[in-house]
């Protein structure tokens, strides 16, 4: 029973990692209705920037806004330079560029910062939350920040004109343009915000898994799984999805005899397939109805 509770708590903590990344996935999906394969590498790049600034001796409270701001600009610029010119190209062209960006960011990080693992200090301090606690201070802080980002994101889409405009631009570009929304600017803004959230996710995740160029490779996969499970259009769904994936993965690994430990990931993904077959829009997603 003790082990059961511990595995749930630990799965909740790992789920927090996936949830962070899932939020970034939802953000970009809201803006462009695609999944950006380079999202993870861009987030890792942001984390390296934060690490480098810390290594240069800047204090934490200065580094975080700086890294997030730079990532926002970076994401915005990537969209302007790379995607604006191929706005009307078929989906496949976009996918090829996502993959190219993935390779470029990954190799560039290896070249600049090499492939050895780097410890990233936590903003919340080291050690367990209290004596004997399974959650460390950092993991608790990470989950709290994820919740905060979730609320901000929800409020942004729900209550701000820009948020509404961004949703409109993604859902129906033509009509949005007709009512005076600058659709292509909205797309770039979406990229910037997704990169900024990616930076937050990266900085939160790195103290747990250690920073290296391939840090996000598998996390993006789990984050995507969480987002799909919860609903790609719903930030809340994505976060819940992330937590579910983390917990299911741990319980499967611990309690399914023989294959459990070896098939943690497939079992989690199998669950997602089941959900999608039964409820394609995800647990909390909206059913997207499109006129054709």
């Amino acid at each position: 029973m003790d082990l059961f509770l511990q595995q749930i708590v630990s799965g909740f903590a790992t789920g927090g990692i996936y949830a962070c990344m899932a939020l970034s996935v939802v953000m970009i999906y809201q803006a462009i209705h695609h999944l950006n394969f380079a999202q993870g590498e861009m987030a890792t790049f942001s984390t390296f920037i934060a690490w480098q600034l810390l290594a240069w001796g800047l204090p934490y409270f200065a580094v975080i806004p700086l890294a997030i701001g730079l990532s926002f600009i970076g994401g915005f610029v990537v969209e302007r330079v790379v995607f604006k010119p191929i706005e009307n190209a078929p989906v496949l062209s976009h996918i090829v560029i996502f993959i190219a960006l993935f390779a470029i960011f990954n190799s560039a990080m290896g070249f600049i910062w090499d492939f050895s693992i780097k410890p990233v200090p936590s903003a919340f301090g080291e050690g367990p939350l209290y004596e004997g606690s399974l959650l460390s201070k950092h993991q608790t802080g990470m989950i709290a920040v994820t919740m905060l980002v979730l609320v901000l994101l929800w409020a942004f889409f729900r209550f701000t004109r820009v948020g509404l405009a961004m949703r409109a631009a993604a859902a129906n570009p033509q009509s949005a343009r007709l009512v005076g929304i600058r659709v292509s600017f909205m797309t770039a803004l979406g990229w910037g915000m997704a990169s900024a959230i990616g930076a937050v996710a990266g900085i939160l995740i790195a103290p747990v898994v250690f920073l290296e160029p391939n840090m996000m490779l598998s996390i993006l996969l789990y984050g995507f799984a969480g987002a799909v499970l919860g609903g790609l259009t719903s930030p809340l769904g994505a976060v819940i999805g992330g937590f579910i994936v983390g917990i299911v993965e741990n319980l499967a690994g611990t309690y399914i005899p023989v294959v459990g430990g070896e098939l943690k990931l497939p079992i989690a993904l199998f669950l997602i397939v089941v959900v999608l077959v039964v409820k394609p829009e995800g647990l909390l997603g909206r059913r997207v109805v499109q006129r054709v």
Binding site: S10, T14, Y222, T254
Partner: peptide
């Protein structure tokens, strides 16, 4: 491909 080994250590 596992992001962490937390579960195993527990």
């Amino acid at each position: 491909a596992d992001p962490t080994v937390d579960s195993q250590i527990i």
